[in-house]
Amino acid sequence: MISFSVNKKRVSVDDAPDTPLLWVIRDTVGLTGTKFGCGIAQCGACTVLVDGSPTRSCSFPVGAVAGKSVTTIEGLANGETLSAVQQAWLETQVPQCGYCQSGMIVATTALLKEHPKPTDAQIDAALTNICRCGTYDRIRVAVKKAAGLA
């Protein structure tokens, strides 16, 4: 059994240690907000925070999170109160299909922790996730709104 916390709740799972964290979160823990997009850490749809660091969970073995703290999209809001990033996303009307947005929002959460007032270059460097609906224009606006820059 591998034990770690997900959104501040302790979980123990019997998946093989080399199972990607993504599938453990989705199928064993049952939180489906974290998405599968490519399986090779290219698209970022599966981004979660591991001890606060943005991590592409499709390519990160669950064995490596033993004893650590994982935060998923479901762990960002406080009850019905959205996080600042989620609120900015809603006000800017960012999502279209929405499939990549969990990863985008989690990656932005990590970015703003490291750079509370990010430059465009810092935004470009941190948000390398893929969105096939092309919501990028509104994402940039929403990041700045969440950072109090717009």
């Binding site: 049952g30 489906t32 599968f36 959205l82 960012v94």
Partner: peptide
Amino acid sequence: LRRLDLRDKVTGRAGFGIDVVVPGMLF
């Protein structure tokens, strides 16, 4: 007007095909 599906799409609650869970389901 604001879209009515977006709150679920910023909280991870929106259910896509890949998220469907049916009792007794296999993968």
